[in-house]
């Protein structure tokens, strides 16, 4: 197979995952949330248990008028949804699915690349907030800025722990080095990474920047139509990315029985389980206040992440000695 065909195949596969997995997670959220609340959720669209609900939603969004407010900064306002959405596409390129190079683009600096790219999404949120010329958008944007910059710290510190333990920044290599007993001594980092990840993608209980009961819809207040759909899609891609990263960094990715043949399935199962927990927390837990979010970040998560780094470094040195 010529090299460029293979490259094209890998990119198309990553694009496919980027378009399909968020829809699956979104549909799962509809259904899981409904059943946890004693409802059935969508049942009509597509015939069988409303499987086509999100496709119908997409068609609906595409048909709606995309309004740009008169006072808005038009160019920035139009660009923001793409800036919020596209970085995640590049994350999909380096997420390993299975052993033996089953990854769109193996990268030695994979973890570094992923964390750097995730930071760009923050800019998209701020662009949307500033350019909307709406006080609710601005309030939501400021909350988002404080929250996203704050939680970047524990996210990075917690992600550094498995990299330190494995001695590499390459995501496939981290999975290779992973052993089941890591679940124990990396557990604090797992918790911190997962929680900080939730806050980074602004999922409940960290959805104060959106907070529809206080701020209309935060930085998304002025968005309609397809641009709004892009932001929604970004939220669900975010769930997939954070779940997949948690699975790859802390849960051993493709490792499991028969990992040589069905390793990709293990990665998907672990990712799906983490995504289920993300949905579950949204159903069960109330929203934290903006000040509680900051307090929790700086007084709980950051110290735990730092202590975990010390522990990881100590165990590494003891193992190498």
């Amino acid at each position: 197979m010529p090299e460029w065909v293979e490259l094209a195949l890998r990119i198309v596969a990553a694009l496919g995952a980027f378009l399909v997995f968020p829809l699956i997670v979104g549909q799962a959220e509809h259904k899981v949330m409904a059943h946890m609340q004693g409802r059935l959720g969508p049942m009509k669209a597509g015939g069988f248990h409303g499987w086509a609900q999100l496709l119908a939603d997409g068609v609906k969004f595409a048909q709606k008028e995309s309004i740009v407010p008169a006072g808005a900064d038009r160019a920035i306002f139009r660009l923001a949804p793409l800036v919020a959405l596209l970085p995640y596409l590049f994350v999909f390129l380096v997420l390993p699915l299975g052993p033996h190079g089953l990854v769109a683009q193996p990268l030695d600096l994979g973890l570094f690349f992923v964390l750097a790219i995730l930071g760009i999404g923050v800019v998209g949120v701020l662009m949307a907030a500033w350019s909307s010329a709406n006080k609710y958008s601005l309030l939501g944007g400021l909350r988002a800025a404080a929250q996203l910059l704050g939680y970047e710290v524990p996210l990075l510190l917690a992600a550094a722990s498995p990299a330190l333990a494995a001695g590499t920044l390459s995501l496939p290599e981290i999975v290779n080095e992973w052993e089941p007993w890591w679940l124990l001594w990396q557990f604090p980092a797992l918790l911190v990474f997962f929680i900080a990840g939730l806050a980074e993608i602004r999922r409940p209980p960290f959805d104060a920047p959106l907070a529809d009961s206080e701020l209309v819809f935060g930085y998304l207040t002025e968005y309609t139509g397809l641009r709004f759909a892009f932001f929604l899609l970004a939220e669900y891609v975010g769930i997939v990315v954070i779940s997949a990263l948690t699975a790859v960094l802390f849960l051993g990715g493709w490792q499991g029985p028969l990992s040589d043949s069905v390793g990709w399935l293990w990665t998907l199962v672990k990712t799906a389980l983490v995504a289920f927990v993300v949905i579950w927390l949204r159903v069960a837990w109330p929203r934290l206040r903006a000040d509680q979010i900051q307090r929790f970040c700086w007084l709980v998560l950051v110290p735990i992440a730092l202590a975990q780094l010390v522990l990881t470094a100590g165990v590494r040195i003891a193992l190498d000695a």
Binding site: A34, G38, A284
Partner: peptide, 21 residues
Amino acid sequence: ALFSGLGVTLRNLFRRAHTKQ
């Protein structure tokens, strides 16, 4: 209460929904 909330929602997940079609 956080954990009992998780328990309640998980139990609900495996019960029949109340919705009438």
